[in-house]
Design a protein around this nucleic acid. Sequence first.
DNA 1: CGATCCATTGAGAATATTCAATGGTCGTGG
DNA 2: CCACGACCATTGAATATTCTCAATGGATCG
Lengths: 242, 242
Amino acid sequence: MPVSLSAARHEPAARARFAALGSFSRTDSEAPVTLNDYLRAIHGCSSRQHYRRGETIFSEGEPADRVCKVISGTIRLCRYSPDGRRHVVDFVNAGDLIGFLECADQPWTAEAVTDVTLVSYPRASVDRLAASNAAIRTRIACHLSAGLLEAQHRLFVLGCQCAKERVASFLVRQGDRVDLMAGEALDLPMSRQDIADHLGLTIETVCRALSALRSGGLIAIPNSHELILKDMGALRAMAIES
Amino acid sequence: MPVSLSAARHEPAARARFAALGSFSRTDSEAPVTLNDYLRAIHGCSSRQHYRRGETIFSEGEPADRVCKVISGTIRLCRYSPDGRRHVVDFVNAGDLIGFLECADQPWTAEAVTDVTLVSYPRASVDRLAASNAAIRTRIACHLSAGLLEAQHRLFVLGCQCAKERVASFLVRQGDRVDLMAGEALDLPMSRQDIADHLGLTIETVCRALSALRSGGLIAIPNSHELILKDMGALRAMAIES
DNA sequence: CGATCCATTGAGAATATTCAATGGTCGTGG
DNA sequence: CCACGACCATTGAATATTCTCAATGGATCG
């Protein structure tokens, strides 16, 4: 199960869209009660795990019997085809939740992009909690809906956008995800290959697109894992925030 | 809101994956109670509509206040970008349900590919029904999950597959969706342009891919809206049922 | 300090797109 | 019933984009 919780948080449009149903944001001023808050009720049956950069957290096909909250670090969710192609379904950051899909087996493999700390709850406990509380069920439905809308937005990106636009879309999404301040560097813990497999491009094409954006003055690249979004307006226009 | 109910039905893998949670299939021998069955309880507040081929059923941004069941015909769900690009998010066939997303506004436009008859229920009534019944809430969560898994599979298709593979994936999915008999013609009511916009290709590339599949003996094309899947094994191999 | 891994850039090849022309089908109206 | 017109599908040729292969550069970690 999966779907980073982030979906509703990152895109302003999605945020507005869900306003009537309650924000997913973790900033308490905006939303008094989040899915995250509800999980605290079953803190007693949670467990904490650490993973090293590169480690596999769980693999496709394993029983999907836990809900996970990322405490620190970044995870990538991958699907591998028999002939070795890889698709990075999503990146999951600190604060995000995965594991709410109604799905007996893990639909993908989760790998640690950086060192990762996460807290996990038995799915059975979460289900019991949900059974007892209508509000949390609504949150879960919102969470799944947000994930689906996010996936559909990404379908648009892969189906309709060229390489440069895809990279711009990715950067805008990452930037929104962390509520980036103007001029502040965006952290990109994942490799260029990860980004490429996320966007349906090759590593070289991602590099060239980034170089082109830099040449155009839209971004600066202090080092390969940090990046400054110099012209957010132009990036958004290129990303076609539909 | 959205997501054709079909998701869990079409892919054997997805079907197996959800077995533990109950199949979505409409063949009663497999599943005694479906989301569809539950809706009968509120048949009293349903209404029936007809649309002509090409008509818009609802548009992106309108209030999403009804759940719809397609009785006959085919719908395409589209997202338009400001500069006119179109992405066909999904096709919805007879028996499929849309409108379960937790989303105040329609995230896409629904257009009739053929003449369409549908029955719709007020979202508020569906929500009341769900509030009173834990089983239906589970079904809805399964429905949303299936939609999300389907969307993620399509992300793999758009991100990792070449034109010929994408078309093969599309045909396999359409074939599975209707439980096609060997040798039976597959109905493709949508235009080549619709298929192209669904697969992130151009109309010409779709035509060329179909011609190539025909040359390879995998399919036959009696006419442009009917098609025979002659070598389902080879098609599945090309589609990489991951 | 060296080795490895990752990122970047270049050049040539492959794939898909664009532009263009032809052919076929369907529906309308004579 | 046939003819016309509109629209859609198909194919070809040239172009553009992205990929593949290759080499170099830079950073990180023993």
